[in-house]
Amino acid sequence: MFKRLMMVALLVIAPLSAATAADQTNPYKLMDEAAQKTFDRLKNEQPQIRANPDYLRTIVDQELLPYVQVKYAGALVLGQYYKSATPAQREAYFAAFREYLKQAYGQALAMYHGQTYQIAPEQPLGDKTIVPIRVTIIDPNGRPPVRLDFQWRKNSQTGNWQAYDMIAEGVSMITTKQNEWGTLLRTKGIDGLTAQLKSISQQKITLEEKK
């Protein structure tokens, strides 16, 4: 169930391209415009997507990853294993993690069937560096609404905000991946996880038929 919630949630996290980005210092504006741009692209490019579902990787690479804190999220997933990894191991892992996100997020976007969304009203940021933004996803086919909290983090150097995690039903996506990959990290280390991520990233994206 959580895996499905995570995939549905990713439908609204794909941010804007650099040329049309919203105010990078306001995570609420980023979330709002990102959702609108993403849904528009999914709707307008269905012919290309249906002809070649792996085209979704391109959308992810162009529109999402430049505005997601990939390395920060990847380091959180590694936890204690990050500090013990060599620079070469980290570089290989982050490259594999990025390719994994292209496949995983692309597969999530393949679930698009006309969903709509509501974003919580903007709250004062103050001096906060981590801000959760509640998004409610509404399914046109009558499924119950899904309420999610996207975690946005302020870059201490640039002042810009980027998304790095999502919490559904009190469970963090980062925590879920830590639990899912924990045994592999304990037995085969970061190299074993890197190899698995490379394998997963090679899987073809498949479209979910409308139910």
Rank of each mutant, 00 (worst) to 15 (best):
I137A: 15
P47C: 03
I137L: 12
Q80R: 11
Y82V: 12
R41A: 12
S199T: 03
M111Y: 00
T176V: 12
Q36M: 08
Q157D: 11
V146T: 07
F2Y: 00
K198A: 12
W161V: 10
P66A: 13
N44G: 02
K3E: 14
R4N: 06
Q103S: 14
Y67W: 03
I137E: 00
K154M: 03
K3S: 03
P66G: 08
N160E: 09
L184R: 10
Q80Y: 10
P53I: 02
H113A: 02
K83Q: 07
V60I: 05
I200T: 08
L76P: 05
Q123Y: 14
L11Q: 05
I167N: 10
V131L: 11
R41C: 04
E122L: 02
P87W: 14
V131N: 11
I200M: 02
W181R: 09
G159E: 13
P87G: 08
G79D: 02
I167W: 01
D40M: 15
P15R: 09
T187N: 12
L197C: 00
Q151P: 04
A34D: 13
L109N: 09
K3W: 02
L76N: 02
A108Q: 15
K128M: 15
Q36G: 10
Y117Q: 10
E122N: 02
Q62H: 14
A168W: 15
T187L: 08
Y72D: 03
G114Y: 11
T136S: 05
D127S: 01
N160D: 10
M111H: 08
Q118R: 06
M31N: 07
N26H: 05
K204V: 09
Q103T: 14
T129F: 11
K211G: 11
R98A: 03
H113K: 11
I13R: 03
R57D: 00
W152C: 03
T25V: 08
L10Q: 01
F97W: 01
A85C: 00
D127K: 01
A21W: 05
R134W: 12
G192I: 05
K3L: 02
K102D: 01
N26K: 11
I190F: 12
Y72N: 01
P87Y: 15
T206Q: 15
M1E: 00
K210R: 11
I137C: 00
A110S: 10
E209G: 10
W161I: 01
A9N: 00
M1D: 08
N44L: 02
D191N: 03
T116W: 08
R153Q: 08
D165R: 10
D23N: 14
Y93G: 13
Q24E: 06
Y100L: 01
S201Q: 01
L184V: 08
V12K: 14
Y100I: 01
I13W: 03
P145F: 15
P144S: 08
W152N: 04
Q62K: 05
L56C: 11
K71Q: 03
Q46E: 08
G74K: 15
K204T: 11
M166V: 09
N141L: 11
T183F: 07
E180M: 02
P132I: 09
L207V: 13
I133F: 11
M1P: 06
R134F: 04
V131C: 01
S201I: 11
Q162S: 05
E169H: 14
G142H: 14
L10F: 03
Q162M: 08
P145R: 10
Q203A: 11
M31F: 02
Q157H: 08
A110D: 12
E208T: 13
T175V: 08
V8I: 00
T25S: 09
A18R: 03
Q46H: 12
Q115M: 13
W152P: 12
I190T: 02
A95Q: 05
G192C: 04
V135S: 08
R153S: 13
T25W: 11
P124S: 07
A168V: 05
M31I: 08
W161C: 11
N179W: 03
D139T: 06
G74H: 13
A95E: 13
R134Y: 01
I138Q: 14
E63K: 15
G74C: 08
D40G: 06
R4D: 10
Y67L: 07
Q157T: 08
S201T: 11
D191H: 03
L148R: 14
F97Q: 00
A85R: 01
P87R: 12
L185N: 15
V171I: 10
N44V: 02
K83R: 02
R134D: 13
K37I: 05
Q62N: 14
A92D: 00
P27E: 02
N155C: 11
D61A: 02
W152T: 02
D40F: 11
A21K: 02
A51C: 00
L109T: 14
M173L: 05
Q178W: 15
Q80G: 14
V60R: 06
Q178D: 15
E63I: 05
L109F: 15
V131S: 06
R4L: 02
R98G: 01
V68P: 09
A22Q: 00
E122F: 13
S201W: 14
A19I: 00
L185V: 14
G192S: 07
A120M: 05
K43C: 00
L125V: 03
I133A: 06
V12E: 04
V70F: 12
Q46F: 15
D139Q: 15
R57M: 08
R147N: 03
A73R: 13
K211H: 08
L11S: 01
R41H: 11
Q89N: 08
A96T: 09
V12Q: 10
Q36V: 12
Q80E: 02
N155P: 10
L10H: 00
L193F: 12
T194N: 08
K102S: 13
G189N: 06
T194S: 10
G189T: 10
L56D: 15
I190H: 13
D165M: 10
K3M: 04
D23I: 15
Y164V: 11
Y67C: 15
D149W: 09
T136L: 08
L76R: 06
Q151I: 15
G159V: 02
F2I: 00
V12M: 09
K204G: 11
T129L: 07
T175H: 15
R134I: 00
E33N: 14
Q103A: 02
I138C: 01
L185F: 02
L11G: 08
Y81E: 01
F94T: 00
Q157W: 12
E99Y: 00
L56P: 03
L101Y: 01
R147F: 07
P121S: 14
T175K: 13
E99Q: 15
Q107S: 09
T176Q: 15
Y164A: 08
E91P: 05
A51P: 07
I190M: 02
Q69T: 08
W181Q: 08
K211Y: 09
I119Y: 07
P145V: 11
G159W: 12
S17M: 01
L207S: 01
E209S: 09
A92S: 01
Q151D: 07
Y105M: 00
L78H: 00
D40K: 01
G126M: 15
P124C: 10
Q157N: 09
L5V: 08
K128F: 06
D139G: 12
D32I: 02
W161N: 00
Y81Q: 00
